[in-house]
Design a protein around this nucleic acid. Structure first.
Length: 449
RNA sequence: GGUCCGGUGGCAGAGUGGUGAUGCAGCGGACUGCAAAUCCGCGAAUGUGGGUUCGAUUCCCGCCCGGACCUCCA
């Protein structure tokens, strides 16, 4: 097998990937903050790293994939305040929604999905280490990380502490020693979630949870840390600072991967523009595999335009793949051809081109190609259903008997060369989203919507 | 303003220092009663100006255009 190359945000270039422990790849991905439904930007990150997870599982004996759930956050508090719904209710519901959405998107569950609120003691332990080593200080009830104590601060984002100071456009809290210092722990009022700590009752800052949970489950050093590009600064930069200072010499994550942002129908996705598309919205418009393919048709580091046009194209691509599977899928296959292309920095568009080549071959009668196509689909998390289910399953109505009756009537009409009647029947079905296809073995049907 | 990323056919979207993948759409043809699907074929692109090179879409520089990020916190 050829090398696995991954673009490391730390070096801004592709590197040959070698896990620290050849027996087990350790990966951490930033999961959702559970105050609202996942949007398609979240979905992209989840789908991209799910493909990586599948690739790694195909290449290495074991993969341990950790994806956290942030269930303590001021956005959650704010949602509870404005809606009146209790925090525990908001987070429980949103987590259930998230799991349902991920399943619909075809994402494998991570090996463990730790919740921030279950790891407060780990966070406190980490903060105490930072206090003891002089990287953190208490001020006005807060505990802050002192960026000046970490010379490498900025190694990921490319910002220097000085630049940040110069460019600061937000009012800096007066108790900070350096404008770049960030909160590790902050005080909570009685109506806010809080935990007892050496610094009084309080709650964690945004970044410390990921340092704590990755430490807990993956150790001081691990292989891959992934997330959206918008997390590079400040979130990941601060994670690095916390973890590297708490565990000198550890280096924290060895490879950082960041997926690009989304546009919707050509516009930047934002709540103010009113085009903030939830994954659930997308799933209402198209099957999960179609949404997933749209997210994987573009290389993960590039900006992606999520459009209705793209949904249509993706659906037609999947139609073709399923047609190829319909004819031939009965041989053992490895998926190696597809995996080889994916191993060039998760080159899903390139691998998709290879999938089309396999589909061509399968449609031409190469049974092995059809099986390779299926195996490639397993790497993509696509082609996970039977062609029959894809073309004729789901989408509501149980009018299969009526459809078959109509087909039988049309067959009689055609045999009598009454094509006007035959076409009338076909048009009536087409109006209900049923497309008839006359083949050598008779007439088959599929849903077009 | 600072830092960084990107500009490929009508659209989407890869690779590559030496005749520019793949998909969708379009056009012509085969097949079909007609379609659908499938197959065959066709046209169509590397933002711009320089530089390096025998040769640049690929490497370097300028320019233009587009995009991302520039924290804490209420």
């Amino acid at each position: 097998m050829s090398d696995l190359l991954l673009h490391n945000s730390l070096s801004r270039g592709k590197e040959r990937f070698e896990p620290a422990d050849p027996g087990c790849v350790r990966m951490y991905v930033c999961g959702p903050t559970v105050y609202d439904l996942a949007h398609i930007g979240n979905a992209r990150a989840m789908a991209v790293f799910d493909v990586l997870y599948r690739m790694l599982r195909a290449r290495f004996p074991r993969v341990f994939y950790v994806r956290n759930i942030t269930d303590v956050d001021d956005k959650i508090n704010e949602r509870a305040r404005t809606s009146g719904e209790p925090i525990a209710s908001i987070t429980a519901r949103t987590i259930a929604d998230f799991h349902a959405d991920m399943a619909a998107l075809g994402c494998l569950p991570p090996d463990i999905e730790p919740r921030a609120t279950a790891h407060i003691p780990d966070m406190i332990a980490l903060i105490e280490r930072l206090m003891a080593s002089g990287h953190a200080y208490a001020a006005s009830g807060h505990v802050l990380f002192a960026v000046g104590s970490f010379p490498a601060y900025g190694m990921l984002s490319g910002y220097s502490a000085e630049e940040l100071q110069a460019g600061a456009r937000v009012e800096v809290a007066p108790f900070k020693r350096h404008p770049g210092d960030f909160v590790l722990w902050k005080p909570s009022t009685p109506d806010m979630p809080g935990w007892d700590s050496p610094w009084g009752r309080g709650r964690p800052g945004w970044h410390i949870e990921c340092s704590a949970m990755s430490w807990r489950y993956l150790g001081e050093t691990f292989d891959i840390h992934g997330g959206g590009r918008d997390l590079i600064f400040p979130h990941h930069e601060n994670e690095i600072a916390q973890s590297c200072c708490a565990f000198p010499g550890s280096g924290f994550a060895r490879v950082w991967l960041h997926n690009g942002m989304l546009r919707v129908n050509g516009e930047k996705m934002s709540k103010s523009l009113g085009n903030f598309l939830t994954l659930r919205d997308a799933l209402a418009r198209a099957p999960g595999e179609v949404v997933r393919l749209v997210l994987l048709r573009t290389h993960y580091r590039a900006e992606l335009d999520f459009s209705d046009l793209a949904l249509g194209e993706a659906r037609r691509e999947l139609d073709r793949f399923y047609r190829a599977l319909e004819r031939h899928d009965d041989v053992q296959a490895s998926g190696d051809a597809i995996l080889r292309t994916l191993c060039d920095d998760i080159n899903t568009p390139g691998a998709l081109a290879a999938m089309h080549g396999l589909a061509d071959a399968a449609l031409a009668g190469d049974r092995r190609a059809g099986s390779e196509l299926r195996a490639g689909g397993d790497l993509f998390g696509l082609l996970q259903q039977s062609p029959a289910a894809w073309f004729r399953g789901a989408s509501g109505s149980d009018d299969v008997g009526a459809i078959n009756a109509a087909i039988a009537e049309r067959r009689q009409a055609r045999e009598a060369r009454n094509f006007a009647r035959a076409d009338q029947i076909r048009a009536a079905l087409a109006g209900r989203g049923i497309l008839l296809e006359d083949g050598p073995a008779g007439t088959t049907w599929r849903r077009t919507s």
